[in-house]
């Protein structure tokens, strides 16, 4: 049974002071919260909607909604967790609008074992990303993560990219802790599997060939 762990009592998150200032009428404190989190919120919206315009709107709407509902914000969750929850709901609403009739929810569990059992077991080159230009790499990373279900992408983004705890991720997404853990594991393994295609060490024969043909431009 999943429980959300309580936040340590004597530990005050720096956002608490900012939220207090906004409540007291200091709108510049809200700008600080926006600058701190707008990129992260934008990314979450992109991961869910896969649409740039929608992501822009979601980012705006989420912050505006949070501003208006700030009085309802209870100090027992973190501001960012609360904000993400609003952004996720906004994102899902956009998705529903676009795909009418098709139910979209973050906790629809996707029965896919694709890539969850590692098949490609070839080791990767030492610094595999260096075999690609920045823009090639960016495309590979985007294409790869797009292949995952939205509920996996957003768990991976929150836990592994943004560094939220499992408990905060669960709270932000309205999922149980075990659900977050199982999605994270599958997301990681699927991404790994898909990236192997680009990053695996070349076979010994072709490695020997490339050493032999020394005239390659670096």
């Amino acid at each position: 049974m999943a429980t959300i762990q309580p936040i340590a009592e004597n530990e005050q998150h720096p956002d608490v002071a900012l939220v207090e200032r906004v409540r007291a009428g200091d709108v510049s404190a809200y700008d600080e919260l926006v600058r701190k989190y707008d990129r992260q919120v934008f990314r979450i919206a992109q991961h869910i909607t896969q649409n740039r315009e929608d992501a822009e709107d979601v980012m705006q709407d989420a912050f505006l909604k949070a501003y208006e509902k700030l009085d309802q914000f209870q100090g027992n969750s973190k501001f960012y967790t609360w904000l993400v929850r609003i952004a996720v709901n906004e994102s899902l609403m956009r998705l529903r609008k676009r795909r009418t009739g098709k139910m979209v929810s973050i906790d629809e569990d996707v029965a896919t074992d694709d890539g969850s059992v590692p098949r490609d077991l070839a080791d990767w080159a030492p610094d595999p990303e260096q075999n690609y230009t920045q823009s090639e790499l960016q495309k590979i990373l985007e294409k790869t993560i797009k292949g995952l279900p939205p509920g996996f992408r957003v768990v991976f983004e929150l836990r592994d990219v943004q560094g939220l705890s499992t408990e905060d991720t669960a709270e932000a997404l309205g999922l149980s802790v075990p659900a977050v853990k199982s999605r994270l594991l599958r997301a990681r393994l699927q991404l790994r599997e898909r990236l192997s295609r680009y990053f695996k060490r070349k076979s010994t024969r072709s490695a020997a060939n490339s050493t032999a043909s020394d005239g390659r431009k670096g």
């Binding site: 707008d38 990129r39 934008f42 990314r43 992109q46 991961h47 740039r52 992501a55 980012m59 080791d123 990767w124 595999p128 990303e129 790499l137 960016q138 990373l141 985007e142 993560i145 991976f156 592994d160 990219v161 990681r188 393994l189 991404l191 790994r192 990236l195 192997s196 990053f199």
Partner: peptide, 17 residues
Amino acid sequence: TTRKTIQIYRSHQLYEM
């Protein structure tokens, strides 16, 4: 390679706002 996967995604932020 799973560790590397996470590290690559962490250091190459997608979707510039």
